[in-house]
Design a protein around this nucleic acid. Sequence first.
DNA 1: TCAAAAGTGTTAGATATACACCCATGC
DNA 2: GCATGGGTGTATATCTAACACTTTTGA
Lengths: 239, 239
Amino acid sequence: MEKTLINEESGEMVKTSVMSTITIDCVIFGFENGSLEILLVKHGRGIRKGEWGLPGGWIKEKEGLDNAAHRLLRELTGLNNIYLEQLKAFGDPDRFPMGRVITIGYNALIKREDYNIKAGFTASEAKWYKIKEIPNLIYDHNQILDYSLKRLRRRVRQAPIGFNLLPEKFTLLQLMQLYEEILDKEMDKPNFRRKILRMKLLVDLNEKQKDVSHRAAKLYRFEDNIYKKLTEKGFSFEF
Amino acid sequence: MEKTLINEESGEMVKTSVMSTITIDCVIFGFENGSLEILLVKHGRGIRKGEWGLPGGWIKEKEGLDNAAHRLLRELTGLNNIYLEQLKAFGDPDRFPMGRVITIGYNALIKREDYNIKAGFTASEAKWYKIKEIPNLIYDHNQILDYSLKRLRRRVRQAPIGFNLLPEKFTLLQLMQLYEEILDKEMDKPNFRRKILRMKLLVDLNEKQKDVSHRAAKLYRFEDNIYKKLTEKGFSFEF
DNA sequence: TCAAAAGTGTTAGATATACACCCATGC
DNA sequence: GCATGGGTGTATATCTAACACTTTTGA
């Protein structure tokens, strides 16, 4: 892996031996029927044909990291404007058996309703797996996933990002069940309601559920600019 | 930047054009005289000679990312066993003017007493800067530092990592002042004492300060295995 | 009328916050 | 004795956690 690169210190081109290849791998989360799921792809060719892994790909020459991740997600799901968060770089020298490849992990949160509408045209086989039924994955992808889940659990308590996994309009019980599933912890319905409503973060849509065989619940929406305004006033989301 | 690399999908070597170079940059925090400081280095050669930047360097062929960061820190400070935490990868295509270079940021926390003993032999000029007096730095290093500080502020409230910036033996007021400085927020002495002591995280050394012109304070020590045991019992550090 | 979920009320206990006050030591 | 920080006590407001209870709706 001898190659030309630039010495940051001197600004000159020098011959030196360092590792080089970089990829991006995405942990794409979805929430459906009360279960947290991630989207895996089946490797179509090569040594590990048939095994599952995180969707990923290369970064282009003039592309920022976040842009590359957005592009890869668009290619896979047909969706733009996905909530995205870089995890970190994974660079164990042995993580990839055929050479030194460093990968940058991303967490993506998508609304399953959007995915169901737009996706399906992808070439490589993709499938949603419940978080508790993840198979052995290629390379170090199980490790990346472990890290990803820990990060999601931490982040979901610090910032209002869970909404990215729910439909535009949702009920408080749906929101609570999302938290219960992500944090793997039972919660108290009355207390949850009060806590979230007290934040004044949600817009009451004055609409109700339809076609449910029980009392219809109010629908709410999360709006990012409300959160921003509250944050400016010193509010800090905590769960 | 045409070069040979491995297609992850197929396992075959393919010719393709992607970016390649990777560096590590470290934000090294210290705490002295009630001030949070970071260690910057002066660029000795090249275009931006004389300007200050974060210490960093290359990753070796068969070296993990964390190991590379540890090695760089050892080269710069003479210290082993530094508390280290990866931030994330910074990869704006224009961040480095002379070519595509992605850098992986690290936060390092060191005890100034150790540094003062071991350091000083380094070739490149290094200097501690108070966090409120940071000059303009090379490349995107101010951005990396902004991210680093936000991360430190978040982490210091979630995990007992602040101790890595204090001497082995410290008083509760020192600890409180560290928190006040990092979080940029005044705190109440009695309440801080109770809160931290209630956690039963600190070892009371049954020792007192010496040579102080006021009532001598008790000295405490933080021990990681106590924290681990508490964590196993469900304790979670929060500030 | 029953099941299922929506939604309200109440209370005991734990935490946070603010601040008054005494203690020990060197100068 | 006074300045400086060490250290204790206490009252109030707020939040958490547990759970009893009423309401609405479709089947």
